[in-house]
Every structure is written in structure tokens, then in C-alpha cells.
Simulated scan of single mutants.
Amino acid sequence: MTPRTRLAALALTGTLALTGCSGSGSSAAPGPVAAEPGSSPELTAQPVGTVVSAGGNQPEGVVVVDGTLVVAVRETSGLVFLDLAADGSGARVIEKLTTDQSSRHLDLATPAGPVLVPLEGTNELLTVDVPTRTVATDAKDVGDGPHNAARTADGTDVVTNEHGGGVLFVRGGEVVGSLPAGPPQPGGLAVVGDYAAVADVQGGGVWVYDARTMTQVAQKPVGALLTHAITLAEPGRVDGTDAARAVVAIADTSGGAVELERITPQVEDVGRIDAPGSPYGLAYDAARAVLYVTLTDTNLLRVVDLADPANPRVLGDLPTVRQPNSVTVDERSGTVVVAGNHDGNLQLIPRALLPGG
């Protein structure tokens, strides 16, 4: 089957498969196979660094804003705010913001926030101010199962519509457009300037949208079954507007790799990182040009030097907490935080304990 024929078959699929990304059951007939994180086994090694409670069960998305660690928890639904020690030695719960439903993935609109919080169960996109720990905007009717969101350089929040297909565009807390065509089951996305690169968990590769014009501008088969994506932004940025770089990392969870693609907006192969063990969570330390990849089959964190994205260099693997679905980096110190979805724990790894630290 040619890539074009294969994509057409995917687009005609009427029922979308629920995956480990969706986190909910359904009585609908099973659809096409979609990528899922690995089901992590019991720990066989002590996690590196310090392990603390997330302040709630089933922690998933994690971000850090000026020393405040924000964690999405699923029981009970909400965001937990923790004061993260500058040296990565500990974290103290400050407050919890309860939400109607839970979020799996968190992203920063800018390095200073707000936090973009898609609520899959109520089809909302919240923006949450970190200093005040309050909801700034609440966009309603954001598709069917908004999975991930990121803000482009022009200020548009692009949201993947996991169970409806395609993406939605949100400005000022209001949905201003949508494109149901494209990936049948979009998962993660990453932005480069005004472009949003979206990963399809059913194997449709990468789809690129121009947020200014709300149009699809590129598509390319990439990897096997993709899940999440992250921008290799410059220090102090989240949108990858540096034209010389413009690279995104995409977890090929079923293919056991991380694909590196340049978005121009066409999708151009740059490099590939071997990552056996269902790679899932991604974080990038821009100041040190290091990518962190969680391997959910084996409870490991792969550390990769990306000083030259065309020639990635694996620095080593570290044991993590169980079910390491998400990871983030504190830009101040380089401390890495891994969320252990199974036991409700967070793992804090100071820079000194990381390979090359």
C-alpha cells in the first residue's frame, strides 16, 4: 500500500480508537490500532535523585514556571502547585486547583506562563496563571477530547481534537476555527513560529498547520505510530522561531525511536534517536541542548545530547519512578522532573546526577 493510499484509508475510518493517551473507556466498536505508552513493570532499580509525592493520584502533565512545579493529577482532577527547590532536592505542595475534569498534558504558552490545560472530559481549554493559581480563560466546546495544546508565535492556541480528528484554533479564550480534516486521531503537537506540527497516533505521520491562516500546509508520513512532540526551542523561548533550528522531536512510541524533523513548514528529516521501550514523555533543556525521553516499557529516562540534531548522541539511561509518562526541566538549574503515573510520585533529578552534568 502506498503512503497516499494508506492515508486515504485512515481518513475514511469512521470510528477512532481510544488509546492510552485518551485515558477513558468506550462502548464503541474498536477502531484502528493506535499508539499507547508501555505498561511499566514493577521497579527493579532505585530511581535516581529524590522521590516525593505529587500531591494527588495519577500525575501526568508537568511544567515548571519560575520555580513553581505544576502537575496535572487525575484523582481528584486538578492541578497541584509545588515549590521546587532550586537545587532539585525537594518540592513542597503550595496549593491545589480543582477542575471539573482532568488533563493529561500541560504546556506553557510562554516560558512565564500561562499554563495551557486541555480538559478532555468536558472539552475545554483552560489557561491558568501560575503566580495567582487561578483560571485566566476557559474556552468551551473545544472539539471532542482536546488532548494537547500549544501556543504559536502569533498568539493562537492550537489544540489537537483527539476523538474528532484535526485541530482547533483558540484566541482570547474563544474557538475561532477548526479543521476536521487531517490526522484522524491527533495526539501531541509542537510549534515552530506560527506553525503547529501534529503527531497522528494512528500512523498518519506529521501534519502541519499555519495558525495565522488556520490552514493545513504540509503532511508527511513519519515513523510508525507517533504520540508526543516537543519543540527544540532556544533558551527563553517555547515556539522555536529560530530559523536555523526549527526542529521538533516526535516520539515514535510503537517504533521505538524519536524522530527529529525540521518544520519549514514542509517536514524535513533531520535525525533519529534509537529509543527502545515505548518512548513517550519528552522534555528539552534548551540551555544545555539536551533531550530527555521516558521509556515506559522499562522505567528508564534516556538522556540525549542534541548540540547537533543531525547527529544525536545518547549520553545514558537513568532508572525512574514507575510509569514515567511525563517529564519536564527546570530552566533555572537543569533539574529534571519525572511524573510516575502508577504510584503518584514525582522524581527530582538534580543536574549533577545527570549524564554529562
Rank of each mutant, 00 (worst) to 15 (best):
L43N: 01
K140I: 09
T50E: 11
G23C: 11
I230P: 00
Q58Y: 14
E75M: 09
D83A: 09
D107H: 08
T110H: 03
V327G: 11
V33M: 15
Y292R: 13
D274F: 12
G61P: 09
F81R: 05
R288I: 00
D239R: 01
A218V: 00
F169K: 05
L318G: 11
A139S: 11
M214T: 06
P324K: 05
R322W: 07
L126H: 12
R6L: 09
L116Y: 12
G25M: 08
D308F: 01
V71L: 13
Y280C: 06
A112I: 03
V158W: 04
E162G: 00
V52A: 09
G56P: 01
R313T: 06
G90D: 15
T296V: 14
T296L: 13
V201C: 02
V73D: 06
S22F: 10
V329C: 07
S102M: 09
R351A: 14
G49F: 10
T320I: 04
V247C: 01
D305E: 10
S333A: 04
G182W: 03
M1W: 06
G236K: 08
K140S: 07
L43I: 03
T264Q: 03
A196R: 04
Q347V: 12
L282C: 01
Y209I: 00
V62K: 07
A112E: 13
H342Q: 10
D308V: 14
A136D: 07
P111I: 15
H163D: 08
Y280M: 02
V321S: 05
V65T: 07
A224Y: 08
A91V: 14
I273M: 08
V191P: 00
N161T: 10
G23K: 06
T160E: 02
A286N: 07
P235E: 15
D129S: 09
S39I: 13
A197Q: 02
P265Y: 10
A86F: 05
Q219I: 06
A211W: 04
R212M: 01
A197I: 09
G172Q: 06
T227L: 07
T13I: 03
Q101C: 01
A249C: 10
V290W: 05
L295Q: 13
R151L: 03
V238M: 08
Y280E: 13
G145S: 11
A275R: 14
G256N: 15
R4Q: 12
S26N: 05
T98M: 02
T44W: 06
P32K: 14
D154Q: 06
V258E: 10
L306K: 02
P118N: 09
V314N: 07
L84H: 02
E36T: 15
Q185I: 06
P186K: 07
L12V: 04
D100W: 00
A112C: 03
G173S: 05
Q347K: 11
V248I: 13
L300Q: 15
G340I: 10
G255K: 04
A190K: 04
G166S: 02
P309D: 09
A149E: 06
G121M: 06
L232Y: 02
T15H: 12
G203W: 00
T335F: 04
A287K: 12
P146A: 05
E234H: 04
A136E: 13
G166A: 03
R272H: 08
V64F: 09
G356K: 10
T127V: 08
C21P: 05
T156L: 00
L295P: 12
